[in-house]
Design a protein around this nucleic acid. Structure first.
Lengths: 145, 145
DNA sequence: TTGCTTGCAAAGGATTTGCAACATG
DNA sequence: CATGTTGCAAATCCTTTGCAAGCAA
């Protein structure tokens, strides 16, 4: 967390932006989360520590964190932006349970390789991709799904 | 197109739904398109043939087409629902140019296999997935991207 | 005739933005 | 003290929905 805060601090000064208690609180809360989180959910948590905070501030901050390279935006296909840690948290894909919404991060170098090769086959230079695997997790299947 | 219209007709009667000129016009327009299309864009086209049509009708119709198995919903990560043909048009992934938005449909059985295996490794039973590959197409790269 | 459909406009949900008051460097 | 930042509410974007009038079966 120290490293992330330092990075963010540098990002702020480099861009002539200011360090505010709101930004510190939001960053702190975001960093403590292990799982990805939506702006709305983060707002709910942050509000408990500072009821006067506005949700626009949270939205703005998450965008800022993404720009600073500390957060990465996810898209589970429901039009809700979720953010996960990006620092020291290499690329991975997501496995998502259709029933309980449990998510698992998966890394599969072979899939990445294949994607690159497929793209090249069509003359594309790959920059990034988004892969979400949907299904039913072990738990939910046991209970008859 | 004949087959699709027949399927849709059957779907309507089986569900006690009605055949209307609006539905016919929208289906016809959708079927003539080769590429995926958003509700809004489809509405713009349809409106030229019948200016009195409402966009809600187009939205409702696209949902109906998806239910009837004639259309498939895409999600390019921008919160806009796009629909492509589903009949006689097997599953594939999309390669999308970040510059000119050109899209290419790609099929790679190996990727599908791998996904299934990865899911199983984590105890998941895969139902579906969403894979979008983003990059720069041959054309855009030539011009210096 | 019954009840599905339509077009309209209003509502919806997530996110963004304009603005005046405020606070940081 | 210049300028970035905040909270609020209004605006935005795409999509859905309530409703009264219209139309298919």
């Amino acid at each position: 967390m120290r490293a992330e805060k330092e990075i963010f601090g540098k990002y702020l000064s480099r861009h002539n932006l200011r360090d505010t208690p709101q930004r510190e609180l939001i960053l702190d809360t975001f960093l403590k989360r292990e799982e990805h989180i939506s702006a709305e959910d983060l707002y709910d948590i942050v509000k408990k520590r500072d009821p006067s905070i506005g949700q626009a501030t949270v939205y703005r901050m998450l965008k800022l964190l993404a720009e600073a390279g500390l957060a990465r935006e996810l898209d589970f296909g429901d039009c809700i932006k979720r953010y996960e840690h990006n620092y020291n948290h290499p690329h991975h894909d997501h496995l998502i349970c259709r029933k309980c919404e449990k998510t698992v991060e998966v890394v599969e170098p072979q899939i990445e390789d294949l994607q690159k090769r497929v793209a090249e086959k069509y003359g594309f230079k790959l920059t990034d991709h988004s892969l979400y695997l949907y299904g039913y997790c072990a738990n939910c299947r046991k209970r008859g799904n």
